[in-house]
């Protein structure tokens, strides 16, 4: 990938600023007043227990689901003006893997932000897509239908699509879910490479053990932001206890109670 410098408008504007973000599903808040600024060219992990609102945070920050309050700035500008600069990798389950489409076609979608409406991808776009596939070791699979891929391969295809987008910021929702050690290494190496190219990388992550070795910053999340900062100072037992020590967390108890009392459709997401 070419080494595009992020479009700074002065050093002071961080890649992502999220202000007072509050999100509610059917009137029940699941994220309270989240407020942070991501550091430039760093790898940040978002960790927290299941249902902590990690996916919700990324989706809301990207404006994919409505939020009750708050807004996001990308390099100091409104999100909608900067979307091309943010590559979002959804959770793997978010699409139908039986869809009649080839690996190449999926990766080519990463080029769509660079194309006008109704404009077809050019040969150049195809070359970039092939290159992205190569970078995740999937070039032989370009013609395959996506249903013939294993979970780890699907994840790599999603990563290749994000690479083809050639963005400055990468947001990945659980790219390591259900992948084997080999794929994990491929993905980690690729992300680290992105960081050396001055890209900003955010990963929703479940494996706490691998956080200190692979990430610079960490956000601990459980319906609110418990802590956010460099791994060395933030990824402490005390903070982890606060995040994962479920029973002590009054907030999650209240959410649980409200859930029991009212009918809620969990399946829609």
């Amino acid at each position: 990938m070419t080494n595009v410098n992020p479009p700074h408008t002065g050093k002071q504007n961080p890649p992502i600023e999220v202000h007072d973000l509050t999100v509610a599903y059917e009137q029940k808040p699941v994220l309270w007043d989240i407020d942070f600024e991501l550091p430039e060219s760093k790898m940040t992990a978002i960790v927290g227990p299941n249902g902590a609102g990690k996916s919700t945070l990324i989706k809301a920050a990207m404006g994919l689901i409505p939020s009750s309050a708050g807004y996001t700035l990308i390099y100091g500008k409104p999100l909608d003006k900067q979307r091309r600069n943010v590559a979002y990798v959804p959770q793997r389950e978010s699409v139908d893997w039986n869809f009649p489409i080839s690996v190449m076609d999926v990766v080519l979608m990463g080029r769509y932000p660079h194309l006008r409406l109704f404009q077809r991808p050019s040969r150049k776009d195809r070359e970039i897509a092939t290159e992205s596939l190569k970078q995740v070791g999937m070039e032989e699979y370009a013609k395959r239908q996506i249903s013939q891929l294993s979970g780890g391969q699907q994840q790599r295809v999603f990563l290749a699509r994000a690479l083809a987008q050639d963005a400055a910021i990468y947001l990945l929702d659980e790219p390591f879910a259900g992948v084997d050690a080999a794929t994990e290494t491929v993905i980690f190496n690729k992300l680290q490479e992105l960081r050396t190219l001055n890209k900003t990388v955010v990963v929703v992550h479940h494996d706490l053990q691998s956080v200190p070795d692979n990430f610079d910053w960490v956000m601990l999340l459980n319906l609110r932001m418990v802590a956010f900062g460099p791994v060395d100072t933030t990824f402490t037992d005390e903070n982890l206890q606060k995040t994962y020590g479920g029973r002590l967390n009054i907030l999650s108890q209240m959410v649980e109670r409200s859930r029991q009392q009212r009918f809620i459709r969990e399946t829609e997401s």
């Binding site: 989706k59 990207m62 404006g63 994919l64 909608d80 979307r83 091309r84 943010v86 979002y88 959804p90 978010s94 699409v95 139908d96 869809f99 489409i101 076609d105 999926v106 979608m109 769509y112 932000p113 194309l115 409406l117 109704f118 404009q119 077809r120 991808p121 699509r161 987008q165």
Partner: peptide, 17 residues
Amino acid sequence: KELKLVSFDIPFARSIG
């Protein structure tokens, strides 16, 4: 191209505006 994208992956389509 647009219809294919919207039929396959709406969250991604939204994310790229």
